[in-house]
């Protein structure tokens, strides 16, 4: 997994709460493999009014934010469906960080697996950053994971991120490799558990 240390770039405000993964990637694109370019259809039904017909009002379609590396949204970003392809679509578009007051649990878990930082700030701070970006669209925002701060013009904001996720992003750790080092404990648990909870094994009659 690609490491995340610092990131500087255009930041696009999405001034909505409860942005769900159905919005981030509509269900009809879930058939697509990663290689088909999910970034093209990120936020499809908000970005386009019809095929190829861009919605000029959607922030990502504004010239300053087309190449955004960061999104800034209101609370509960990424709620809803567990589709990890929503994270693939963000990453493939070029987004490496989402700043919001809170995130859907499953989305935040999926994000870290793909090197996408979910940086949590307060409701007021998110609203303030959104106002700053709306006033100065070309402002480049700097996110520093080591120091857990966001520099936006002459303002600096602290953000929170789960310490385990922070360590994984900073080091680019892969979960499966990590779990491999616990193989002996897993094997021991399995043996003991099969004995103690024999009922937990599916009956053969099924």
């Amino acid at each position: 997994m690609e490491k995340f240390t610092t990131l500087t770039g255009p930041a696009c405000p999405i001034n909505q709460s409860n942005v769900n993964t159905d919005q981030i990637l509509p269900a009809r694109y879930l058939k697509w493999t990663r290689g088909m370019g999910l970034g093209k259809v990120l936020f499809h039904d908000l970005r386009f009014r019809a095929a190829e017909d861009e919605n000029p009002d959607f922030p990502l379609n504004k010239p300053a934010w087309r190449d955004a590396k960061i999104l800034v949204a209101a609370r509960n970003f990424g709620c809803g469906s567990s589709r990890e392809a929503a994270v693939y679509a963000l990453c493939d578009y070029g987004i490496r960080c989402v700043i919001a007051p809170s995130f859907g649990d499953i989305f935040a878990g999926n994000a870290v697996q793909n090197g996408l930082l979910t940086a949590a700030v307060t409701d007021d701070e998110a609203a303030e950053i959104i106002v700053l970006l709306t006033q100065m669209p070309t402002l480049h925002v700097r996110v520093d994971l080591e120091h857990q701060d966001i520099v936006c013009g002459d303002r600096t904001y602290r953000f929170t991120v789960d310490p385990v996720r922070r360590a994984r992003l900073l080091n680019g750790w892969d979960d499966i490799d990590l779990t491999e080092s616990y193989r002996a404990q897993i094997a021991a648990f399995r043996v003991k558990d099969r004995e103690e909870r024999a009922w937990a094994t599916p009956a053969a009659g099924g």
């Binding site: 567990s82 589709r83 990890e84 499953i106 878990g109 999926n110 979960d175 499966i176 779990t179 897993i186």
Partner: peptide
């Protein structure tokens, strides 16, 4: 609980999952 594709792969390979107690 619901999980994403990377976690599905992890469970398929190890029958375990990393979680922080909610």
């Amino acid at each position: 609980f619901g999980i994403g594709a990377s976690e599905v792969a992890h469970v398929l390979m190890t029958q375990t999952i990393w979680q922080k107690k909610p």
